[in-house]
Amino acid sequence: MLAKRIIPCLDIKDGRVVKGINFLSLRDAGSPVEMARAYSALGADELVFLDITATVEKRKNLSALVRDISENISIPFTVGGGIGGLDDAYAVIESGADKVSINSAAVRRPSLIDELAGRFGSQCVVLAVDVRKNDALSSGYEVVIEGGRKRTGLDALSWIKEGEKRGCGEILLTSMDHDGTKNGFAIDLNSRISTNIDIPLIASGGAGRAEDFYDVFSLGKADAALAASVFHFHEIDITDLKRYLKDRGIAVRI
């Protein structure tokens, strides 16, 4: 049976992991490669690296980092952050990333999705969508960009359906209302989106307890769940989480 996936997300700035300083007993918890190795050993099913480096100059080192990660882990990983065109995507895929994720750039120029899917295949293209509650829109959620600072007026479900039609292979859906609260994932949102698309959905935003993962898989119909701080600060141990989910009847890879 196809397993539900658990995906830690690492924010990278200038080649270093940020927010991960409390991670286990790593010698160097700021090293993306060491954290990737540790998560892989704990049973993470995939990893997402989000590059939040501000300057173009420093971003040039990203390819070398991606290659280093690729040589050190044997599970799939996605790289996102600042990918605005074929060249950016080519650089990380050529260096060994399995998928790229695109967000604001796709909202500004939707044909980016078609271009990436046409060149690398749909399975390589993750459309990351950040949303906030907005009852004025038909699905009840509005797409926001630039880290949640800017509203777009786009209805979340229509945008996701458009992304699917244009060829993305997966949706990474973050509820900005839940992100950082640790009060659980947005169950209604995930369930509404997941049952209306034919591609896999990764739920993100709000993970606080093991039960939250159970809820988002069973009630939220998500295919995968992504979290950052609860894993980085070891509030949830991935091995324990998977045992808990398995005991409650969720298919996970152990």
Partner: peptide, 9 residues
């Protein structure tokens, strides 16, 4: 969902 994506037995 299609593609069949992820870990399976």
């Amino acid at each position: 969902k299609i593609p069949h994506m992820g870990w399976n037995t």
